[in-house]
């Protein structure tokens, strides 16, 4: 009985997961709601991956969308060339039915390439900190986006499409809301894994770097390696969110990964409070829903949201949750939640 109570939180996440999937497969929730849920999932991955660097390690990376772009393009090009008839390779390189199995692998490869792109920021971070590093991240974002803009192979500024066909190929095998399934799975895994990372003595090394880098180095923490791990981990997860995003929308263009997208990630992380993973998740959900609710206002949406945020910061200058997690506010929650 105790065991059930302690794991109640995890169970309820699992039950919610299954309910959404079943409802989606049965067609009870329509495609629009499904898309919103998927956007929430993508944003959870995007925001919580940035919170590794900006929240826990205390750096100010503002070019996170660049890594999202890398992941999006790599996994899109892979999945389109592998599983569908396309302009680049003509016939699909693999039988389209394999996409059911290989789809997550393709997304992961996008993440791995994005993690390697993360080196562009990680290596300068050995020598630089603070605002100077922030500038480097902005420059990297610009570089990645303009690079894609100039790559005619993937459509340049016109963008790249065909990912919907991959989803159809998967649905041809067995009808099932695959993309919804994978977005939710990756989102849950991401949060889970980041939580594990920052609660281990190993991962807490990055919190030590935030609080006092000199002390971290003298207390035997290899700060350069930890920075490398944090940046690559963070950009790799951003790449995964990008790959999923591309497949949800079915179309990517370099413009969707501009500084504005990076700003969205910053908004979600700082709205949550620096160093609160639960906060990042909550603000990713709130932010996505807010975006959808304000859709009728069209462009005014992007006046209202910043205004709301400025107001929020006037009242809670440390963000919604500061550096605390949910159970710190509601100690009773601890009863239903045991973390290993």
């Amino acid at each position: 009985m105790d065991k059930i109570r302690q794991n109640l939180f995890i169970y309820s996440v699992g039950v919610l997961f299954i309910i959404i999937l079943v409802l989606a497969a049965a067609g009870v929730i329509d495609l629009y709601i499904q898309t919103v849920i998927m956007f929430i999932g993508v944003n959870i991955i995007f925001a919580s991956s940035l919170s590794i660097v900006n929240g826990y390690m205390g750096e100010f990376s503002c070019g996170h969308a660049g890594f999202m772009a890398v992941g999006a393009y790599v996994s899109s090009v892979l999945s389109v060339t592998l599983f569908t008839a396309n302009k680049l390779t003509g016939a699909p390189l693999l039988p389209p039915s394999l996409s059911v199995v290989l789809f997550p692998v393709v997304i992961l490869i996008g993440g791995i390439v994005a993690a390697i792109a993360g080196l562009l920021v990680a290596v300068p971070s050995f020598k630089t900190r603070d605002d100077y590093l922030a500038i480097i991240t902005i420059a990297v974002n610009f570089i990645i986006v303009t690079l894609i803009n100039n790559m005619a192979v993937v459509g340049g500024s016109r963008g790249f499409m065909g990912m919907k066909k991959v989803l159809y190929a998967m649905k041809d095998v067995v009808p099932f809301p695959y993309i919804l399934f994978w977005v939710m799975t990756f989102a849950i895994l991401t949060v889970f894994i980041i939580r594990r990372f920052v609660s281990s003595v190993y991962g807490k090394g990055i919190i030590a770097i935030k609080q006092d880098e000199v002390a971290a180095e003298i207390m035997s923490i290899n700060t350069n390696r930890m920075k490398l791990v944090a940046f690559m981990f963070s950009s790799g997860l951003a790449g995964i969110s990008g790959g999923l995003f591309a497949h949800v929308i079915g179309y990517v263009n370099p413009g969707s990964f501009s500084i504005l997208k990076s700003t969205e990630a910053l908004v979600m992380v700082y709205m949550a409070g620096m160093g609160s993973l639960g906060g990042s998740v909550i603000s990713a959900i709130l932010f996505t829903i807010l975006l959808e609710l304000l859709r009728p206002f069209q462009i005014l949406k992007w006046v209202i949201i910043p205004l709301l945020l400025i107001l929020l910061m006037q009242f809670r200058p440390e963000g919604l949750m500061g550096d605390k997690e949910l159970p710190d506010f509601f100690p009773k929650l601890k009863k239903y939640y045991k973390f290993k």
């Binding site: 894994i193 990372f197 003595v201 807490k204 919190i207 030590a208 006092d212 002390a215 207390m219 791990v229």
Partner: peptide
């Protein structure tokens, strides 16, 4: 590290002989 508990302050100094990898932690 002023925003980390005393226990964490002591624990983190074991970084040099953790004997488990990133994958081990995840």
């Amino acid at each position: 590290w002023h925003d980390m508990t005393v226990l964490d302050n002591i624990r983190l100094s074991q970084h040099y002989h953790l004997q488990y990898s990133l994958a081990g932690a995840l």
